[in-house]
Design a binder for these strands. Structure first.
Length: 816
RNA sequence: GCCGGGAUGGCGGAACUGGUAGACGCGCUGGAUUCAAAAUCCAGUUUCCGAGAGGAAGUGGGGGUUCGAUUCCCCCUCCCGGCACCA
C-alpha cells in the first residue's frame, strides 16, 4: 500500500512495548481506585468472529479510557471451554473434545493478541481444567449439605432412534437433527439448584441496580414472575386426593367451567389405564419437544377424562380434561379454567363447546358479552352468589379468607421462575460430584476427594456419554459405607462455569480455596459487557451464584455486576453472520489487510454498542482512509519542526475558533466515552476536529501551537479506540512517555467562550431564518432582532402576535 | 403464544432533557491531479416545485397532546433477541 501509514509495523511495535512493560498486569494496589472491566468470556469455537471482535473492542475502549482517568484497571480473559460443539466436532472428525478445545483456545488467543486488547494474561482461565471446575464441584457439595440442591424427575427431549437426550437446539421441527426421528418428551431424574430460594432477593435487588439497562431488568422481573394468589383444592369425584391449583384471580372462581391437567398427571395416567383413547392422546402429547415456545405456539388440544371435580364454592360438578398446554413442571400440573375471563381458556372452551360464564362485569356498568370475547379486566363480581357486587380486592380477600378459615386453601406467592436443572447427559462438562450407593442413595463426594476429574482421552461415538463406558471412572466406593458404588455420569450445565468465573479471575491460582482476599479487592465487576441474548439466563444464574458464594462466607458482595452493557449483533445483509448462511467475514483477513486499528475503528464507528451493527466492506475502507489522513496530518505537522509553547493571550479569531473546537470536542468525547458509551459519535467528533485542523491553514508560531494542542488531543482521545497508531503518533509529536501512561486531555472551559451565537427563528414552529446575536443578549433584545428579520416579517404578515417563545441561545418562536 | 427491543436519505447512523431532522462516514455525481489507473484533493448530494430567493412535504402506518414531536401518549404493521438442554 502506497502510504507512509504502515499498520503492521506500528502495531507490532506498540504491542511489544506493552508486553515488555507488562502494562496491563495488575496487582491489588489499595492506594488506587480499582476498575474491573469484564467481557463475557468466549466459547472457544474455532476462530474469532466479528461478534467477538466487537464486544472485546467495546470493553477494551472502556478499560483503556478508565486507565487514562487514573484508575487501577483489571481486564482479564478466559475460556468458557465446556460445551456441545466440542462433542460435535469429536463425532465429526474423531478428535477428542479436549484436544479440539485446547487447539481452538491457542488460535483465538493469538488473534486476540493481534488485536491489541489490554488484557492481564497472567489471570487467564480455562473452565475445562480441573483446577477451575473443582471449586464448583466443591460449592455443589456445600449446597448439598445446605439442602440447596436436590434430585427430581424432569423432562428431556428423547431421540428414540439414537437413544440419546437432545438439546432443544438439536430438535428441528420436532425431529432429531441426526436421526430425523420424532422426538419424545421423557422424564428422567436430574439434579436441581434451588434458585427459587433466592427469588425474592433476586427480584427486589433489581430496583437498586441503576447501572443495568431497564430492558434487562424488566425481562428479569418478568422471568421471575412473582404473583400473589390463592392456592386452593377441588375435590375429585371418586378420588381420595383433592386437586390443587393456583390462581391469581380468585374473584373469577365462580366462572370455572372445567379443569385441565397435564398429560403426565397421575389422574390422566389413571384414566388412561381404562380408556385406550385417552392413552393414545397422552402418548400423542408426549411426542413433542420440551421447549416452551413449541408448547405455546402449537394447537391447543385436549380430551375429557370422564371424571369430575367438585366446585369448592358452588358444589357443582365441573369436568376434568387432559390438555397438551398444561405442563407437569409448572406448579401442580393442573389448572382451573375460567373461559369468560382468560384468553386461552376462552379459545379452548369455544373449540370444545364448553360453557362460558360471565362472573365479572365492568365497574362502569357497560355491558359485555363473554360469548363474543373474554373480559380480562378487573371489575365487579356477578353470578357469584354471596360475592356479587364486590370489587376485585374485596372479592379476593373474602374468598381467600373463606378458603383459609375452612382449611381448603391459602394465600400464596407464586413464581414463574423454576429451579435450575443442572444435569446434562453429556460427556464434555464438569462431572457432578455424586456417588450412588444401593444402601446410602446419592452421596456427595467428600471435599478431600475433589476434584472428580473428567477423563480427557476418550473414544467418542455420539451414542450416550462415553463416561458410562469407563469402569475406572464409574466404579467408586461409597464415601459413606465403603461398598462398591457408581459415580454420577451426568455433567454440569455449562452455565455453572460461567456463573462464577468473574470472581475467580481475582485469584485463578489459589488451590486452597475458591476465592480469597484478592476477590474482595476486585469484585464486584464495575463494567460487564456482553450479548443481550444473555439478558436472562446467564445473568440470573450469575446473580444467584454470587449470593450462594456470599452465604458460604466467600465474599461480602451480593450483586456481581455493577454496570451492564448489552451489545447488539453483527449483521451482514441484514442477517446474523453464520457459517450456515455463508455471510461471515473473517477478522483475520481484515487485520492482515488493514491492521487491527482499522478493524477496531470501524467496529466502534459503525453503530452504538447496544444496536445491531450492519457490516460494510466499504465502511472498513473508509475507516482505513481516516487513519491514513490522521497519520499524515500528525507526521506532516511534526516534520515542520518544533513548536513554541501556546500563548492564549495573543490568539487571532481563527486561532480561537480552532481552540474552541478542540475543547468542545474534548468535552463531547469525554462524555461520549465516559458516560454515554456512544463510541460512534466520539469517532465522528474526532473526524470533525481533524477536518477542522486540516482546513486550518496557519503556519504562524501561534497557529502551529494551536494546531499542536488540537492534534495532541485527537491522539489521546482516539487512543482507547485505535491504541497502536496513537502510541506511534504520540511519540511522533515529540514525547518520551508512552501514550498508555498519559492522562486524558484536560478541558479548558475558557476556550469555550463565544461572543456571538446563532439563534433559529420560527413562525408558528416553522423555521423562517437564523440570526447571530451577542451571547449575553437578553430575551427582549433577541426578540426585537427576530421581529426585524424580513422573512419573519413576511410570514407574520398582518396577523397579530399571540405569543413569543424564547429558548436562550437556541431559538425564537413567534406564534400568530 | 408470552417477555424485551427496534424501524430516520441510496446505505450505516446523528439529533443526549420536547426546540434548526439528516452531524460523521459510505456510496454516487462533477471537477483537479495522472500517459492511464489506483491513491489523493476540491465541490455537490432527503424528495418535490423554483433560474434564484424561497416554498412544500418528510423520521414504518393511523390517531392524540403541545407554540413546537424522531423524542411524550393510544392503536396497528413488520423486523430482531429470549423462552429454562446453543452459548
Amino acid at each position: 500500500m502506497d502510504t507512509p501509514y504502515q499498520p503492521e509495523l506500528i502495531e507490532a511495535a506498540a504491542q511489544q512495548h506493552w508486553d515488555s512493560a507488562h502494562a496491563f498486569e495488575v496487582d491489588e494496589d489499595d492506594s488506587k481506585e480499582k476498575f474491573y472491566c469484564l467481557t463475557m468470556f468466549p466459547y472457544p469455537s474455532g476462530k474469532l468472529h466479528m461478534g467477538h471482535v466487537r464486544v472485546f473492542t467495546i470493553s477494551d475502549v472502556i478499560a483503556r479510557y478508565q486507565r487514562m482517568q487514573g484508575k487501577h484497571v483489571l481486564q482479564p480473559m478466559g475460556w468458557d471451554a465446556f460445551g456441545m460443539p466440542a462433542e460435535n466436532a469429536a463425532i465429526k472428525r474423531g478428535v477428542p473434545p479436549a484436544q479440539w478445545t485446547y487447539e481452538n483456545i491457542d488460535d483465538m488467543r493469538g488473534q486476540m493478541r493481534r488485536l491489541g486488547f489490554a488484557y492481564d494474561w497472567t489471570r487467564e482461565l480455562t473452565t475445562c481444567r480441573p483446577e477451575y471446575y473443582r471449586w464448583e464441584q466443591w460449592l455443589f457439595v456445600r449446597m448439598f449439605a445446605k439442602g440447596l440442591v436436590y434430585r427430581k424427575n424432569s423432562v428431556v427431549n428423547w431421540d428414540p432412534v439414537d437413544q440419546t437426550v437432545l438439546a432443544n437446539e438439536q430438535v428441528i421441527d420436532g425431529r432429531g437433527w441426526r436421526s430425523d426421528a420424532l422426538v419424545e418428551r421423557r422424564e428422567i431424574p436430574q439434579w436441581f439448584m434451588k434458585i427459587t430460594a433466592y427469588a425474592d432477593e433476586l427480584l427486589d435487588e433489581l430496583d437498586r441496580m441503576p447501572g443495568w439497562p431497564e430492558s434487562v431488568k424488566t425481562m428479569q422481573r418478568n422471568w421471575i414472575g412473582r404473583s400473589e394468589g390463592l392456592e386452593l383444592s377441588f375435590d375429585v369425584v371418586g378420588e381420595e386426593e383433592p386437586l390443587t391449583v393456583f390462581t391469581t384471580r380468585p374473584d373469577t372462581l365462580f366462572g370455572v367451567t372445567y379443569m385441565a391437567v397435564a398429560a403426565e398427571h397421575p389422574l390422566a395416567t389413571k384414566a388412561a389405564a381404562s380408556n385406550p383413547e385417552i392413552a393414545a392422546f397422552i402418548e400423542e402429547c408426549k411426542k413433542t419437544d420440551a421447549a416452551e415456545a413449541t408448547l405455546e405456539t402449537m394447537e391447543k388440544k385436549g380430551m375429557p377424562l370422564g371424571i369430575s371435580a367438585i366446585h369448592p364454592l358452588s358444589g357443582e360438578e365441573v369436568p376434568l380434561w387432559v390438555a397438551n398446554f398444561v405442563l407437569m413442571s409448572y406448579g401442580t400440573g393442573a389448572v382451573m379454567a375460567v373461559p369468560g375471563h382468560d384468553a386461552r381458556d376462552w379459545e379452548f372452551a369455544k373449540k370444545h363447546g364448553l360453557p362460558i360464564v360471565q362472573v365479572v362485569a365492568p365497574a362502569d356498568g357497560t355491558s359485555i358479552d363473554v360469548e363474543e370475547s373474554e373480559y380480562l379486566e378487573h371489575g365487579v363480581l356477578v353470578n357469584s352468589g354471596d360475592y356479587d357486587g364486590m370489587d376485585f380486592d374485596t372479592a379476593f380477600n373474602a374468598i381467600a379468607d373463606y378458603f383459609e378459615s375452612n382449611d381448603r386453601g391459602r394465600r400464596t406467592i407464586n413464581y414463574r421462575l423454576r429451579d435450575w436443572g443442572v444435569s446434562r447427559q453429556r460427556y464434555w462438562g464438569a462431572p457432578i460430584p455424586i456417588i450412588y450407593c444401593d444402601d446410602c442413595d446419592a452421596v456427595p463426594v467428600p471435599e478431600d476427594q475433589l476434584p472428580v476429574v473428567l477423563p480427557e482421552d476418550v473414544e467418542f461415538t455420539g451414542h450416550g456419554s462415553p463416561l458410562q463406558d469407563i469402569p475406572e471412572f464409574v466404579n467408586a466406593p461409597c464415601p459413606q459405607c465403603g461398598k462398591p458404588a457408581r459415580r454420577e455420569t451426568d455433567t454440569f450445565d455449562t452455565f455453572v462455569e460461567s456463573s462464577w468465573y468473574f470472581a475467580r479471575y481475582a485469584c485463578p491460582d489459589n488451590d486452597q480455596a475458591m476465592l480469597d482476599e484478592r476477590a474482595a479487592y476486585w469484585t464486584p465487576v464495575d463494567q460487564y459487557t456482553g450479548g443481550v441474548e444473555h439478558a436472562i439466563l446467564h445473568l440470573l444464574y450469575a446473580r444467584f451464584f454470587q449470593r450462594v458464594m456470599r452465604d458460604e462466607g466467600l465474599t461480602d458482595v451480593s450483586e456481581p455486576f455493577t454496570n451492564l452493557t448489552t451489545q447488539g449483533m453483527v449483521l451482514k445483509d441484514g442477517a446474523k453472520m453464520s457459517k450456515n448462511k455463508g455471510n461471515t467475514v473473517d477478522p483475520q483477513e481484515l487485520i492482515a489487510r488493514y491492521g487491527a486499528d482499522t478493524v477496531r475503528l470501524f467496529m466502534m464507528f459503525a453503530a452504538p454498542p447496544e444496536q445491531a451493527l450492519e457490516w460494510s466492506d466499504d465502511g472498513v475502507q473508509g475507516s482505513f482512509r481516516f487513519l491514513k489522513r490522521f497519520f499524515a496530518a500528525v507526521t506532516e505537522h511534526a516534520a515542520a519542526g518544533p513548536v513554541e509553547p501556546l500563548d492564549i493571550a495573543v490568539l487571532s479569531a481563527a486561532q480561537k475558533d480552532l481552540r474552541r473546537k478542540t475543547h468542545q470536542t474534548i468535552a463531547k468525547i469525554s462524555d461520549d466515552i465516559g458516560r454515554r458509551y456512544t463510541f460512534n459519535t466520539a469517532v465522528a467528533a474526532s473526524m470533525e476536529l481533524l477536518n477542522s485542523i486540516n482546513r486550518f491553514d496557519d503556519e504562524s508560531v501561534s497557529g502551529r501551537a494551536v494546531k499542536h494542542e488540537a492534534l495532541e488531543a485527537v491522539v489521546l482521545m482516539l487512543s482507547p479506540i485505535v491504541p497502536h497508531i496513537c502510541h506511534e503518533l504520540w511519540s511522533v509529536l515529540g514525547h518520551d512517555s508512552a501514550a498508555i501512561d498519559v492522562p486524558w486531555p484536560a478541558l479548558d472551559k475558557g476556550a469555550l467562550q463565544q461572543d456571538e451565537v446563532e439563534v433559529v427563528l420560527q413562525v408558528n414552529g416553522k423555521l423562517r431564518g437564523r440570526i447571530s446575536v451577542a451571547a449575553d443578549a437578553d430575551d427582549e433584545t433577541v426578540t426585537a432582532q427576530a421581529l426585524a428579520d424580513p422573512n419573519v416579517q413576511k410570514h407574520i404578515g398582518d396577523k397579530a402576535i399571540r405569543k413569543t417563545i424564547v429558548v436562550p441561545g437556541r431559538l425564537v418562536n413567534i406564534v400568530v
